[in-house]
Nucleic acid binder design. Sequence first.
DNA 1: AGGGCTGCTTACATAAATGTCAATAGCGAA
DNA 2: TTCGCTATTGACATTTATGTAAGCAGCCCT
Lengths: 198, 198
Amino acid sequence: MSIAKRRLSPEESRGMALAAARDLLIETGPQSVTLKAVAGRIGRTHANLLHHFGSASGLQKALAAYLSDEVCGMIAQAIQKSRTGEGSVRDIVDLTFDAFDKQGGAALWSWMMLTGNEDALDPIVDAIHALVDDIGEAGHDDREKHDDTLALVLMALGDALIGDRLSGSLGLPRDSARDMAERQLADALERWKCEHES
Amino acid sequence: MSIAKRRLSPEESRGMALAAARDLLIETGPQSVTLKAVAGRIGRTHANLLHHFGSASGLQKALAAYLSDEVCGMIAQAIQKSRTGEGSVRDIVDLTFDAFDKQGGAALWSWMMLTGNEDALDPIVDAIHALVDDIGEAGHDDREKHDDTLALVLMALGDALIGDRLSGSLGLPRDSARDMAERQLADALERWKCEHES
DNA sequence: AGGGCTGCTTACATAAATGTCAATAGCGAA
DNA sequence: TTCGCTATTGACATTTATGTAAGCAGCCCT
Protein backbone atom coordinates (compact mmCIF):
# COMPACT_ATOMS: atom_id res chain seq x y z
CA MET A 1 0.00 0.00 0.00
CA SER A 2 1.21 3.41 -0.85
CA ILE A 3 1.96 5.92 1.81
CA ALA A 4 1.37 8.54 -0.82
CA LYS A 5 -1.46 10.98 -0.23
CA ARG A 6 -4.44 11.13 -2.51
CA ARG A 7 -4.75 14.42 -4.26
CA LEU A 8 -8.19 15.94 -3.77
CA SER A 9 -9.98 18.55 -5.80
CA PRO A 10 -10.25 21.96 -4.16
CA GLU A 11 -13.98 21.39 -3.67
CA GLU A 12 -13.41 18.03 -2.00
CA SER A 13 -10.74 19.42 0.25
CA ARG A 14 -12.78 22.42 1.27
CA GLY A 15 -15.85 20.28 1.86
CA MET A 16 -14.02 17.81 4.07
CA ALA A 17 -12.32 20.59 5.98
CA LEU A 18 -15.57 22.46 6.60
CA ALA A 19 -17.35 19.31 7.78
CA ALA A 20 -14.48 18.58 10.16
CA ALA A 21 -14.47 22.17 11.39
CA ARG A 22 -18.20 22.01 11.98
CA ASP A 23 -17.88 18.80 14.02
CA LEU A 24 -15.07 20.31 16.04
CA LEU A 25 -17.11 23.45 16.69
CA ILE A 26 -20.12 21.50 17.92
CA GLU A 27 -18.17 18.95 19.91
CA THR A 28 -15.55 21.02 21.70
CA GLY A 29 -16.34 24.65 21.03
CA PRO A 30 -14.89 27.47 18.95
CA GLN A 31 -11.56 27.39 20.76
CA SER A 32 -10.65 24.04 19.30
CA VAL A 33 -11.35 25.07 15.71
CA THR A 34 -7.70 25.67 14.83
CA LEU A 35 -5.89 25.04 11.58
CA LYS A 36 -3.93 22.20 13.12
CA ALA A 37 -6.94 20.50 14.72
CA VAL A 38 -9.09 20.73 11.61
CA ALA A 39 -6.25 19.55 9.40
CA GLY A 40 -5.56 16.64 11.71
CA ARG A 41 -9.15 15.46 11.43
CA ILE A 42 -8.93 15.11 7.67
CA GLY A 43 -5.38 13.79 7.53
CA ARG A 44 -3.83 16.96 6.18
CA THR A 45 -1.48 19.64 7.48
CA HIS A 46 -2.29 23.13 8.59
CA ALA A 47 -0.37 24.52 5.64
CA ASN A 48 -2.81 22.72 3.42
CA LEU A 49 -5.76 24.57 4.93
CA LEU A 50 -3.93 27.85 4.50
CA HIS A 51 -3.50 26.92 0.85
CA HIS A 52 -7.25 26.33 0.41
CA PHE A 53 -8.66 29.07 2.63
CA GLY A 54 -5.95 31.69 2.48
CA SER A 55 -5.91 32.33 6.20
CA ALA A 56 -7.41 31.19 9.46
CA SER A 57 -10.04 33.88 9.27
CA GLY A 58 -10.78 32.71 5.73
CA LEU A 59 -11.61 29.30 7.14
CA GLN A 60 -13.78 30.93 9.80
CA LYS A 61 -15.73 32.90 7.22
CA ALA A 62 -16.19 29.81 5.05
CA LEU A 63 -17.38 27.83 8.06
CA ALA A 64 -19.85 30.55 8.98
CA ALA A 65 -21.27 30.51 5.46
CA TYR A 66 -21.36 26.71 5.49
CA LEU A 67 -23.27 26.54 8.78
CA SER A 68 -25.54 29.36 7.70
CA ASP A 69 -26.51 27.30 4.68
CA GLU A 70 -27.34 24.31 6.85
CA VAL A 71 -29.39 26.33 9.29
CA CYS A 72 -31.16 28.16 6.46
CA GLY A 73 -31.91 24.80 4.89
CA MET A 74 -33.64 23.62 8.02
CA ILE A 75 -35.60 26.82 8.27
CA ALA A 76 -36.59 26.47 4.63
CA GLN A 77 -37.90 23.01 5.46
CA ALA A 78 -40.02 24.52 8.20
CA ILE A 79 -41.40 27.04 5.75
CA GLN A 80 -42.26 24.34 3.25
CA LYS A 81 -44.07 22.17 5.78
CA SER A 82 -45.87 25.17 7.14
CA ARG A 83 -47.02 26.17 3.66
CA THR A 84 -48.39 22.80 2.63
CA GLY A 85 -50.11 22.53 5.97
CA GLU A 86 -48.58 19.17 6.74
CA GLY A 87 -46.29 20.54 9.40
CA SER A 88 -47.44 20.64 12.98
CA VAL A 89 -46.56 23.46 15.35
CA ARG A 90 -44.22 21.08 17.10
CA ASP A 91 -42.36 20.43 13.85
CA ILE A 92 -41.58 24.11 13.47
CA VAL A 93 -40.40 24.32 17.05
CA ASP A 94 -38.25 21.22 16.72
CA LEU A 95 -36.67 22.41 13.49
CA THR A 96 -35.84 25.77 14.99
CA PHE A 97 -34.42 24.30 18.17
CA ASP A 98 -32.42 21.67 16.28
CA ALA A 99 -30.97 24.30 13.98
CA PHE A 100 -29.44 26.03 16.97
CA ASP A 101 -28.63 22.94 18.98
CA LYS A 102 -27.64 19.91 16.92
CA GLN A 103 -26.79 21.87 13.79
CA GLY A 104 -24.40 24.09 15.67
CA GLY A 105 -26.21 27.36 15.11
CA ALA A 106 -25.80 28.41 18.72
CA ALA A 107 -22.11 27.59 18.77
CA LEU A 108 -21.64 29.50 15.54
CA TRP A 109 -23.54 32.49 16.76
CA SER A 110 -21.66 32.63 20.04
CA TRP A 111 -18.39 32.32 18.22
CA MET A 112 -19.19 35.11 15.81
CA MET A 113 -20.24 37.35 18.67
CA LEU A 114 -16.99 36.62 20.45
CA THR A 115 -14.78 37.22 17.45
CA GLY A 116 -16.74 40.30 16.44
CA ASN A 117 -17.49 38.75 13.08
CA GLU A 118 -21.20 39.49 13.16
CA ASP A 119 -21.55 40.08 9.47
CA ALA A 120 -21.23 36.37 8.85
CA LEU A 121 -24.62 35.96 10.48
CA ASP A 122 -26.51 37.96 7.88
CA PRO A 123 -27.70 34.90 5.94
CA ILE A 124 -29.25 33.36 9.03
CA VAL A 125 -30.96 36.57 10.01
CA ASP A 126 -32.32 36.90 6.50
CA ALA A 127 -33.58 33.32 6.55
CA ILE A 128 -35.34 33.89 9.83
CA HIS A 129 -36.85 37.01 8.37
CA ALA A 130 -38.13 35.00 5.41
CA LEU A 131 -39.56 32.39 7.75
CA VAL A 132 -41.47 35.03 9.62
CA ASP A 133 -42.88 36.57 6.48
CA ASP A 134 -44.13 33.25 5.15
CA ILE A 135 -45.38 31.49 8.25
CA GLY A 136 -49.04 31.40 9.16
CA GLU A 137 -51.77 33.15 7.22
CA ALA A 138 -51.06 36.37 5.44
CA GLY A 139 -52.68 39.64 6.25
CA HIS A 140 -52.46 39.83 10.00
CA ASP A 141 -50.39 42.17 12.07
CA ASP A 142 -46.72 41.88 11.24
CA ARG A 143 -45.64 43.36 14.55
CA GLU A 144 -47.19 40.56 16.57
CA LYS A 145 -45.85 37.96 14.17
CA HIS A 146 -42.37 39.33 14.57
CA ASP A 147 -42.68 39.44 18.32
CA ASP A 148 -43.64 35.80 18.57
CA THR A 149 -40.91 34.76 16.18
CA LEU A 150 -38.35 36.68 18.18
CA ALA A 151 -39.43 34.87 21.32
CA LEU A 152 -39.16 31.51 19.56
CA VAL A 153 -35.66 32.14 18.24
CA LEU A 154 -34.40 33.55 21.54
CA MET A 155 -35.66 30.53 23.41
CA ALA A 156 -34.11 28.20 20.85
CA LEU A 157 -30.72 29.86 21.21
CA GLY A 158 -30.90 30.02 24.98
CA ASP A 159 -31.96 26.40 25.15
CA ALA A 160 -29.08 25.28 22.98
CA LEU A 161 -26.61 27.06 25.25
CA ILE A 162 -27.89 26.40 28.76
CA GLY A 163 -31.10 24.41 28.40
CA ASP A 164 -29.48 21.15 29.34
CA ARG A 165 -27.93 22.58 32.46
CA LEU A 166 -30.83 24.70 33.62
CA SER A 167 -33.70 22.32 33.02
CA GLY A 168 -31.73 19.63 34.82
CA SER A 169 -31.23 21.87 37.81
CA LEU A 170 -34.92 22.76 37.92
CA GLY A 171 -35.93 19.13 37.75
CA LEU A 172 -37.57 19.54 34.37
CA PRO A 173 -37.38 17.10 31.45
CA ARG A 174 -34.87 18.07 28.79
CA ASP A 175 -37.45 19.13 26.21
CA SER A 176 -39.57 21.27 28.50
CA ALA A 177 -38.30 24.40 26.77
CA ARG A 178 -39.59 23.00 23.50
CA ASP A 179 -42.91 22.25 25.15
CA MET A 180 -43.12 25.83 26.36
CA ALA A 181 -42.23 27.18 22.93
CA GLU A 182 -44.80 24.92 21.31
CA ARG A 183 -47.48 26.14 23.70
CA GLN A 184 -46.64 29.79 23.12
CA LEU A 185 -46.44 29.42 19.36
CA ALA A 186 -49.76 27.58 19.26
CA ASP A 187 -51.33 30.39 21.27
CA ALA A 188 -49.87 32.93 18.90
CA LEU A 189 -51.13 31.11 15.81
CA GLU A 190 -54.58 30.87 17.35
CA ARG A 191 -54.48 34.56 18.14
CA TRP A 192 -53.45 35.43 14.60
CA LYS A 193 -56.25 33.29 13.24
CA CYS A 194 -58.90 34.97 15.36
CA GLU A 195 -57.72 38.40 14.34
CA HIS A 196 -57.75 37.40 10.71
CA GLU A 197 -61.37 36.16 10.93
CA SER A 198 -62.65 39.16 12.80
CA MET B 1 6.17 63.12 41.67
CA SER B 2 7.28 59.62 42.23
CA ILE B 3 7.22 57.08 39.49
CA ALA B 4 7.01 54.48 42.18
CA LYS B 5 3.95 52.28 42.17
CA ARG B 6 1.53 52.32 45.02
CA ARG B 7 1.44 49.06 46.87
CA LEU B 8 -2.09 47.69 47.11
CA SER B 9 -3.51 45.14 49.48
CA PRO B 10 -4.27 41.74 47.94
CA GLU B 11 -7.99 42.49 48.25
CA GLU B 12 -7.64 45.83 46.47
CA SER B 13 -5.55 44.32 43.71
CA ARG B 14 -7.88 41.40 43.20
CA GLY B 15 -10.89 43.68 43.25
CA MET B 16 -9.48 46.06 40.66
CA ALA B 17 -8.34 43.20 38.48
CA LEU B 18 -11.73 41.47 38.59
CA ALA B 19 -13.57 44.70 37.79
CA ALA B 20 -11.25 45.29 34.83
CA ALA B 21 -11.67 41.70 33.67
CA ARG B 22 -15.43 42.04 33.92
CA ASP B 23 -15.42 45.22 31.82
CA LEU B 24 -13.19 43.58 29.24
CA LEU B 25 -15.44 40.54 29.10
CA ILE B 26 -18.56 42.62 28.53
CA GLU B 27 -16.97 45.07 26.10
CA THR B 28 -14.90 42.86 23.83
CA GLY B 29 -15.68 39.29 24.73
CA PRO B 30 -13.95 36.40 26.48
CA GLN B 31 -11.09 36.31 23.98
CA SER B 32 -9.74 39.61 25.17
CA VAL B 33 -9.70 38.65 28.83
CA THR B 34 -5.97 37.86 28.89
CA LEU B 35 -3.48 38.43 31.67
CA LYS B 36 -1.78 41.16 29.70
CA ALA B 37 -4.97 42.99 28.78
CA VAL B 38 -6.43 42.89 32.28
CA ALA B 39 -3.11 43.94 33.81
CA GLY B 40 -2.82 46.81 31.36
CA ARG B 41 -6.19 48.16 32.41
CA ILE B 42 -5.15 48.51 36.02
CA GLY B 43 -1.61 49.67 35.35
CA ARG B 44 0.06 46.46 36.39
CA THR B 45 1.96 43.66 34.66
CA HIS B 46 0.74 40.23 33.75
CA ALA B 47 3.16 38.71 36.26
CA ASN B 48 1.35 40.65 38.93
CA LEU B 49 -1.92 38.90 38.13
CA LEU B 50 -0.17 35.55 38.21
CA HIS B 51 1.07 36.52 41.66
CA HIS B 52 -2.47 37.25 42.88
CA PHE B 53 -4.43 34.56 41.07
CA GLY B 54 -1.85 31.82 40.65
CA SER B 55 -2.66 31.16 37.02
CA ALA B 56 -4.79 32.34 34.14
CA SER B 57 -7.44 29.78 34.94
CA GLY B 58 -7.34 30.99 38.53
CA LEU B 59 -8.30 34.44 37.29
CA GLN B 60 -11.07 32.92 35.20
CA LYS B 61 -12.49 31.04 38.17
CA ALA B 62 -12.32 34.15 40.35
CA LEU B 63 -14.04 36.19 37.65
CA ALA B 64 -16.77 33.59 37.32
CA ALA B 65 -17.37 33.69 41.08
CA TYR B 66 -17.29 37.49 41.00
CA LEU B 67 -19.87 37.75 38.25
CA SER B 68 -21.96 35.03 39.85
CA ASP B 69 -22.14 37.15 42.97
CA GLU B 70 -23.28 40.16 41.00
CA VAL B 71 -25.92 38.23 39.11
CA CYS B 72 -27.08 36.52 42.29
CA GLY B 73 -27.31 39.89 43.94
CA MET B 74 -29.63 41.14 41.25
CA ILE B 75 -31.74 38.02 41.50
CA ALA B 76 -31.90 38.44 45.25
CA GLN B 77 -33.19 41.97 44.65
CA ALA B 78 -35.91 40.55 42.44
CA ILE B 79 -36.86 38.09 45.16
CA GLN B 80 -37.05 40.85 47.74
CA LYS B 81 -39.23 43.07 45.60
CA SER B 82 -41.43 40.16 44.73
CA ARG B 83 -41.84 39.24 48.40
CA THR B 84 -42.78 42.68 49.63
CA GLY B 85 -45.12 43.11 46.70
CA GLU B 86 -43.60 46.40 45.66
CA GLY B 87 -42.01 44.97 42.53
CA SER B 88 -43.91 45.01 39.29
CA VAL B 89 -43.71 42.17 36.79
CA ARG B 90 -41.67 44.43 34.57
CA ASP B 91 -39.13 44.95 37.32
CA ILE B 92 -38.50 41.24 37.58
CA VAL B 93 -38.13 40.96 33.83
CA ASP B 94 -35.78 43.93 33.66
CA LEU B 95 -33.62 42.64 36.49
CA THR B 96 -33.33 39.23 34.85
CA PHE B 97 -32.54 40.64 31.44
CA ASP B 98 -30.02 43.12 32.84
CA ALA B 99 -28.28 40.39 34.80
CA PHE B 100 -27.53 38.60 31.54
CA ASP B 101 -26.99 41.66 29.40
CA LYS B 102 -25.43 44.62 31.18
CA GLN B 103 -24.05 42.59 34.08
CA GLY B 104 -22.23 40.23 31.75
CA GLY B 105 -24.06 37.06 32.68
CA ALA B 106 -24.49 36.02 29.07
CA ALA B 107 -20.85 36.66 28.22
CA LEU B 108 -19.78 34.71 31.28
CA TRP B 109 -22.03 31.81 30.47
CA SER B 110 -20.90 31.62 26.86
CA TRP B 111 -17.30 31.77 27.97
CA MET B 112 -17.70 28.99 30.49
CA MET B 113 -19.44 26.82 27.90
CA LEU B 114 -16.63 27.42 25.45
CA THR B 115 -13.86 26.68 27.91
CA GLY B 116 -15.69 23.70 29.33
CA ASN B 117 -15.61 25.26 32.77
CA GLU B 118 -19.27 24.71 33.54
CA ASP B 119 -18.79 24.10 37.23
CA ALA B 120 -18.17 27.80 37.75
CA LEU B 121 -21.81 28.39 36.88
CA ASP B 122 -23.18 26.44 39.82
CA PRO B 123 -23.77 29.54 41.97
CA ILE B 124 -25.88 31.18 39.28
CA VAL B 125 -27.93 28.07 38.69
CA ASP B 126 -28.50 27.71 42.42
CA ALA B 127 -29.54 31.36 42.69
CA ILE B 128 -32.03 30.92 39.87
CA HIS B 129 -33.35 27.86 41.65
CA ALA B 130 -33.83 29.89 44.81
CA LEU B 131 -35.58 32.62 42.84
CA VAL B 132 -38.01 30.11 41.43
CA ASP B 133 -38.81 28.63 44.80
CA ASP B 134 -39.55 31.99 46.35
CA ILE B 135 -41.29 33.90 43.61
CA GLY B 136 -45.05 34.27 43.50
CA GLU B 137 -47.42 32.70 45.99
CA ALA B 138 -46.57 29.41 47.58
CA GLY B 139 -48.58 26.27 47.16
CA HIS B 140 -49.19 26.13 43.45
CA ASP B 141 -47.81 23.69 40.96
CA ASP B 142 -44.01 23.73 40.94
CA ARG B 143 -43.78 22.24 37.49
CA GLU B 144 -45.56 25.15 35.86
CA LYS B 145 -43.58 27.63 37.91
CA HIS B 146 -40.36 26.06 36.76
CA ASP B 147 -41.48 25.99 33.15
CA ASP B 148 -42.27 29.68 33.10
CA THR B 149 -39.03 30.56 34.85
CA LEU B 150 -37.07 28.49 32.36
CA ALA B 151 -38.69 30.37 29.51
CA LEU B 152 -37.88 33.71 31.13
CA VAL B 153 -34.22 32.87 31.68
CA LEU B 154 -33.76 31.41 28.21
CA MET B 155 -35.23 34.51 26.62
CA ALA B 156 -33.03 36.73 28.78
CA LEU B 157 -29.89 34.89 27.73
CA GLY B 158 -30.86 34.76 24.08
CA ASP B 159 -31.74 38.44 24.11
CA ALA B 160 -28.40 39.38 25.62
CA LEU B 161 -26.58 37.48 22.90
CA ILE B 162 -28.51 38.25 19.73
CA GLY B 163 -31.44 40.40 20.74
CA ASP B 164 -29.91 43.58 19.46
CA ARG B 165 -29.14 42.08 16.08
CA LEU B 166 -32.34 40.12 15.60
CA SER B 167 -34.88 42.66 16.78
CA GLY B 168 -33.19 45.22 14.57
CA SER B 169 -33.47 42.98 11.55
CA LEU B 170 -37.13 42.29 12.25
CA GLY B 171 -37.87 45.99 12.60
CA LEU B 172 -38.77 45.67 16.26
CA PRO B 173 -37.82 48.08 19.04
CA ARG B 174 -34.87 46.95 21.13
CA ASP B 175 -36.89 46.04 24.19
CA SER B 176 -39.59 44.04 22.43
CA ALA B 177 -38.16 40.83 23.88
CA ARG B 178 -38.65 42.27 27.34
CA ASP B 179 -42.18 43.22 26.41
CA MET B 180 -42.85 39.67 25.31
CA ALA B 181 -41.34 38.25 28.48
CA GLU B 182 -43.36 40.64 30.60
CA ARG B 183 -46.56 39.58 28.86
CA GLN B 184 -45.81 35.90 29.28
CA LEU B 185 -44.79 36.26 32.90
CA ALA B 186 -47.90 38.28 33.70
CA ASP B 187 -50.04 35.57 32.11
CA ALA B 188 -48.22 32.94 34.13
CA LEU B 189 -48.68 34.82 37.41
CA GLU B 190 -52.36 35.26 36.66
CA ARG B 191 -52.65 31.57 35.89
CA TRP B 192 -50.93 30.61 39.11
CA LYS B 193 -53.22 32.92 41.05
CA CYS B 194 -56.38 31.43 39.59
CA GLU B 195 -55.21 27.91 40.31
CA HIS B 196 -54.41 28.88 43.85
CA GLU B 197 -57.86 30.34 44.40
CA SER B 198 -59.73 27.46 42.89
C1' DA C 1 15.43 54.49 61.61
C1' DG C 2 15.96 49.89 60.21
C1' DG C 3 14.55 45.23 59.06
C1' DG C 4 11.42 41.85 57.38
C1' DC C 5 7.36 40.59 54.80
C1' DT C 6 5.48 40.70 50.40
C1' DG C 7 3.51 43.33 46.44
C1' DC C 8 5.49 44.21 42.16
C1' DT C 9 8.52 44.12 38.32
C1' DT C 10 11.98 42.72 34.72
C1' DA C 11 13.95 39.14 32.15
C1' DC C 12 13.72 34.84 30.42
C1' DA C 13 11.50 30.35 29.01
C1' DT C 14 7.84 27.67 26.78
C1' DA C 15 3.95 26.27 24.03
C1' DA C 16 0.57 26.97 20.58
C1' DA C 17 -1.49 29.32 16.64
C1' DT C 18 -0.64 31.51 12.45
C1' DG C 19 1.81 32.46 8.40
C1' DT C 20 5.72 32.13 4.51
C1' DC C 21 8.25 29.67 1.16
C1' DA C 22 10.54 26.48 -1.44
C1' DA C 23 10.36 21.78 -2.79
C1' DT C 24 7.88 17.43 -3.67
C1' DA C 25 4.61 14.70 -6.04
C1' DG C 26 -0.27 13.41 -7.88
C1' DC C 27 -3.07 13.73 -11.84
C1' DG C 28 -4.84 15.22 -16.19
C1' DA C 29 -3.59 16.58 -20.87
C1' DA C 30 -0.83 16.64 -25.03
C1' DT D 1 5.12 8.61 -21.77
C1' DT D 2 6.14 13.05 -20.74
C1' DC D 3 4.97 17.64 -19.33
C1' DG D 4 2.71 21.14 -16.75
C1' DC D 5 -0.34 22.48 -13.20
C1' DT D 6 -1.19 22.58 -8.51
C1' DA D 7 -2.38 20.04 -4.27
C1' DT D 8 0.50 18.94 -0.56
C1' DT D 9 4.12 19.02 2.63
C1' DG D 10 8.20 20.11 5.77
C1' DA D 11 11.04 23.50 7.56
C1' DC D 12 11.34 27.68 8.75
C1' DA D 13 9.68 32.63 11.22
C1' DT D 14 6.48 35.43 14.06
C1' DT D 15 3.22 36.57 17.38
C1' DT D 16 0.72 35.94 21.56
C1' DA D 17 -0.54 33.89 25.91
C1' DT D 18 1.18 31.73 29.75
C1' DG D 19 4.39 30.59 33.22
C1' DT D 20 9.03 30.86 36.19
C1' DA D 21 12.53 32.92 38.91
C1' DA D 22 15.17 36.37 40.96
C1' DG D 23 15.59 40.91 42.49
C1' DC D 24 13.67 45.55 43.62
C1' DA D 25 10.85 48.35 46.65
C1' DG D 26 6.70 49.82 49.61
C1' DC D 27 4.76 49.51 54.00
C1' DC D 28 4.14 47.82 58.66
C1' DC D 29 6.34 46.91 62.95
C1' DT D 30 9.62 47.33 66.47
